[in-house]
């Protein structure tokens, strides 16, 4: 007989291998293609911003948990690293360090820890940080370095395709003319465009998506419903007036749509529980994104759309329930 006492616990006695640290590692792994592409595209600046952002986020989470909340540091689950990376993915690659620090502090401090840490935050922390920075430092947050500018942090800046489009339409230029001055859709797909650090390459982001789907970290519901909604909605407008509205493909491949659909909207904590809820959530983000892009004053609306839909998650959870076994649909009261 073995030494020591036997363990007794309620069933089940086995557990899946996919636990929180594994999931977090998987997500980080899925973000690596986008990060690598960003380094290739923007040079060492991208790595610098990402590294700083991760460092700040982890340090701030550690400090808050340890000294403010007096509890065990929660950094080992890896969620702070993800928040840091996502924040970096959402900012230009030449952002000065003090702005990154402020962004990290807002993301972790206000967006996450003030609600009780991982699992309790209603809004995506990285987006809270990003939107805070966008509103507080509009100039720095919208000056994107031109790709290929390797090490100089004050490189020449250019506008994003969406920015050019918005400005152009405002001044009355037809979409065709504007598009002809921009790179091709293939270039967009692989990421040859101006923009935030991690959002440019749809290809790299899709690699991450495929990996996460394969590992069963996320399901297809949110990305697919969000992307389909955007395609359908922009498609309708495009069919109505192609001179004033860009094609669905343009909208799909530019700005933060892919980043949002793959990494931001699929955040467990701030998205609905059920598949039905996820479909509604993705649909809502899609609609809001398109409305902001086409009719709002900002050229890009993914961050706002996701944050707004985050606020609706409790309501979606309440109403979008899974079908139950053996329960006939309850009559409406």
């Amino acid at each position: 007989m073995s030494a020591g006492l036997l363990t007794v616990s309620p069933s089940p006695h086995i557990h899946t291998e996919l636990t929180v640290p594994q999931i977090m590692r998987g997500v980080i792994f899925a973000m690596i293609p986008a990060l690598l592409f960003s380094i290739y595209n923007f040079g060492i600046g991208a790595l610098y911003v990402t590294g700083l952002s991760v460092l700040f986020c982890v340090a701030i989470e550690y400090a808050i948990a340890r000294y403010l909340l007096n509890r065990a540091a929660s950094i080992y689950d890896g969620s702070a690293i993800i928040t840091g990376m996502l924040l970096a993915f959402n900012v230009p690659s030449n952002l000065p360090w003090h702005i990154i620090l402020i962004g990290s502090a807002v993301a972790i401090g206000i967006g996450k820890m003030s609600f009780g840490g991982l699992g309790n935050n209603p809004f995506n922390p990285a987006l809270v940080g990003r939107v805070f920075l966008l509103l507080s430092f509009p100039v720095q947050m919208t000056s994107w370095p031109v790709q290929g500018a390797t090490f100089s942090l004050d490189a020449v800046t250019s506008a994003t395709p969406l920015g050019i489009l918005k400005e152009g339409i405002r001044s009355g230029t037809p979409v065709d003319t504007l598009l002809s001055e921009m790179p091709s859709y293939t270039d967009f797909f692989f990421g040859l465009q101006a923009g935030s650090l991690g959002e440019m390459s749809a290809f790299a982001l899709l690699l991450g998506l495929i990996y996460m789907l394969y590992r069963k970290i996320i399901t297809w519901h949110i990305p697919v419903s969000m992307l389909v909604t955007i395609v359908v909605m922009t498609g309708i407008f495009w069919l109505i007036d192609p001179t004033r509205y860009a094609s669905p493909l343009f909208h799909l491949l530019t700005g933060g749509v892919m980043l949002g659909a793959v990494f931001m909207a699929t955040d467990y904590v701030t998205s609905p529980f059920t598949h039905r809820g996820m479909l509604i959530f993705g649909f809502g983000i899609g609609v809001l994104t398109v409305l902001i892009r086409l009719f709002g004053s900002y050229p890009e609306g993914v961050s706002f759309a996701i944050l707004i839909m985050n606020a609706f998650v409790p309501m979606i959870n309440k109403f979008a329930k899974e079908p139950r076994y053996g329960v006939v649909k309850e009559k409406r009261k």
């Binding site: 086995i14 929180v20 699992g119 467990y268 609905p272 899974e322 329960v327």
Partner: peptide
């Protein structure tokens, strides 16, 4: 075996919805 006998560390609920996905009775 001993190394599989104990439960692992508990984290906060991530709201991932995997339990709902897994419930054969469609509960939450």
């Amino acid at each position: 075996p001993k190394d599989e006998a104990s439960r692992a560390e508990v984290y906060n609920c991530l709201h991932c919805g995997k339990c709902i996905e897994a419930c054969p009775m469609g509960l939450e």
